[in-house]
Amino acid sequence: MAGVALAVPGPQRARARYETNPAIRESGAVRILILTISLLFFATFLLLPLIAVFVEALRRGWAVYVAALVEPDALSAIRLTLLTAAVAVPLNLIFGLAAAWAIAKFEFRGKQFLTTLIDLPFSVSPVIAGLIYVLVFGAQGWFGPWLSEHGIKIIFAVPGIILATIFVTFPFVARELIPLMQAQGTEEEEAALTLGASGWQMFWRVTLPNIKWALLYGVILCNARAMGEFGAVSVVSGHIRGLTNTMPLHVEILYNEYQFAAAFAVASLLALLALVTLALKTYIEWQVTRQTSRREGEHP
């Protein structure tokens, strides 16, 4: 639920703006106190858990670490996780573009309500996200009998995992794009049309370049959640080793079997994914700031 809009980091003028300003700076002791408390809190609650993953993963040495990752069940979990993300992310990307186009560029009744509905999956517990597909496609569900008659398995199979993942990552791209495209308005698209551009030319040459960073941002967050989702997938997976286990589920199984080093080894891959996600996210924010300031920098 990375519900944070693409924000351009504030100016790096903190020092001049705040710390040397006699009117608004705190005394040295207060400053040190605030810094100490907040950084200690940060270290205990965020940094330590992150470090612990890697330390625990390597506790029994590199050999055990590598063995845990190349073991067939681990490999199949990695494959399933990649497959799930490869289906869920592009679908939600297309949805995000469509929803943002309709909502940001046109006026229609019920628009605000639709925007709220799009955010809905973020406020639903992942467990319920899994449950609802069991109710629809499970053996006891609405389509259960029909599906089993036709030999189609959705729950306790890969399609269910993908569906649940799509649900929990549903709003990521849309919610990055909607506010940005609303702020950009329709004038540039209209200008492209008056200059003779076709609908697709307008989209590829004007709309897309204007939203590319926000789009990438949404995709990265969407992907991180898609690969890391646990609760929703856990409900619909059935935990069949080598078949319906994603990486997070594999971690759980190993952990519950007291194979701690192996569990943490797989977990460390997911933690790396998280770090790469954060790095890319920071890079995009940096790009956006840099472009804004570069383009505005030489203002005469």
Binding site: M1, A2, V4, P9, L39, F42, L46, L47, L48, P49, L50, A52, V53, E56, L221, A224, M227, G228, E229, F230, G231, M247, P248, L249, V251, E252, Y255, F260, A263, F264, A267, L270, A271, L273, A274, L275, T277, L278, A279, K281, T282
Partner: peptide, 23 residues
């Protein structure tokens, strides 16, 4: 630190769970 504040968004919950338990 600013970048790492978002870690709980990006770190799969199961990973956070076992790591906190170990700590």
């Amino acid at each position: 630190i600013d970048a790492l504040v978002d870690l709980p968004f990006a770190l799969p919950t199961a990973v956070a769970g076992i790591s906190l338990t170990a700590l």
